[in-house]
Amino acid sequence: MFRKKYWVIFCSLLIISACGTAESGADENWPEDEEELTMVVPFPEGGSADRQARALTSELEEELGVPVVVDNREGGAGAVGTTSHYEGDPDDGSHFIYQSQPHFQATIFRDADYDIDDFDYIGLTHESPITIWANEDSNYETFEDLMTTIEENPGELSYSMISASWSDTSVQMLTDELQMEVTDVPYDGGAEIRTALLGGEVDFTASDIDGTLAGGGDDLHPLAMFSDEPYEHAPDIPLVNEELDDMGYDMEFPEISNARFIQVKSEFRENHPERYEELAEAVEEAANSDAFIEQGEDEHMYYTWESEEETRDRVEEAYELMSEYDYLFQ
């Protein structure tokens, strides 16, 4: 009886050891054993998020030695793609997501089944401040010109926006504080809101600097930027708070920026720490590669790498800011 009992224990330990060895072996052979990896982009093809993701996957393939494909899962201002990834994709490292701020945080305010802590954040690749823009041919040469016209014509001026994004909420924050009325006109993506302004369908828009310079070029005129400091790549754009101060308003708005980052489900890191580290190292190398950075510069998008800890801090800080205006993200 004594020998039988310990024989059972011995066999159990062998099984556990074998399982651990098999898992370790699987991790050692990753990602070579994968036919391909998938980067989920929760936005349409052709937009800035899609172009950035495809440029990054090209370099990531070189680092990992396997194909990395982009899977566009558009809809719901990022909610469709993020939800499908969280609920349906495996947590083995074969799928990860090229995420966008504030769209990700906004889905949480709209009762998503996930929260910030359900993901890990490998790193941030791009950040671009939100700016108020007018058509170059319009009568609005300055931020004050636009705001004065809005004040004198309540509800008559319109702006193009994407629901639950900074393109909408930054304008609402501004006009709510100033007790002014404007009309929002919703579109599906960044290219669409800029096209609407270029085509004269709306009077102004709020969009990030890099994406707008890439998509609108010299045909759009920047009026003011939600930032505390001038933007390195467009230093002449006025700052919102300084413009308001010159107009006699005693108020201050926070810095507001779009950001893009690589995100994985937290179970991936918990269950496959070696794979996570390999993917994280590869992403960092790809994001800092000359080819990726040059591709961005060619499109007036200036990439900058931030670490996992820095990225999580930015995601949480933006979430806290958005919490003050959560009614705008519903």
Results as ranks from 00 to 15, higher is better:
294 E>V: 08
15 I>G: 06
65 G>P: 11
240 V>G: 02
10 F>Y: 15
32 E>S: 12
113 D>L: 11
30 W>G: 00
252 E>Q: 13
265 K>N: 08
145 D>G: 07
88 G>W: 08
83 T>E: 15
101 Q>L: 13
158 S>M: 03
182 V>Q: 01
139 N>F: 11
244 L>S: 04
147 M>K: 04
55 A>L: 13
152 E>T: 10
29 N>V: 02
44 P>T: 15
327 Y>V: 05
146 L>V: 06
317 E>R: 05
142 T>C: 01
83 T>R: 09
231 Y>S: 08
201 E>D: 15
149 T>K: 07
234 A>G: 07
152 E>W: 05
145 D>Q: 08
329 F>A: 04
34 E>D: 11
141 E>A: 15
109 F>Q: 09
326 D>S: 12
186 P>C: 09
309 E>V: 02
284 E>S: 13
167 S>I: 06
289 S>W: 00
90 P>V: 03
30 W>Q: 01
193 I>E: 13
91 D>T: 08
252 E>W: 15
176 D>Y: 12
33 D>K: 15
275 R>H: 04
255 E>A: 15
315 V>H: 07
140 Y>I: 06
127 E>H: 10
310 E>H: 07
136 E>R: 09
320 E>N: 10
281 E>A: 15
238 P>D: 08
51 R>E: 14
241 N>P: 00
65 G>W: 04
139 N>V: 12
63 E>C: 01
321 L>E: 07
253 F>M: 12
255 E>C: 14
110 R>E: 13
229 E>A: 07
248 G>H: 11
114 Y>I: 00
16 I>L: 11
138 S>I: 04
138 S>L: 01
126 H>S: 12
229 E>N: 13
112 A>P: 11
132 I>Q: 02
179 Q>P: 01
306 E>W: 07
152 E>S: 10
173 M>A: 08
311 T>E: 11
57 T>E: 08
166 W>C: 06
166 W>M: 01
221 H>E: 12
77 A>C: 10
287 A>R: 01
188 D>K: 14
180 M>W: 12
257 S>V: 03
266 S>C: 05
299 E>D: 14
97 I>N: 05
34 E>M: 08
297 E>P: 06
292 F>P: 01
150 I>F: 06
280 A>W: 00
144 E>C: 09
13 L>H: 08
236 D>G: 00
179 Q>M: 09
93 G>D: 06
239 L>R: 09
105 Q>Y: 06
280 A>D: 12
117 D>E: 15
119 F>E: 00
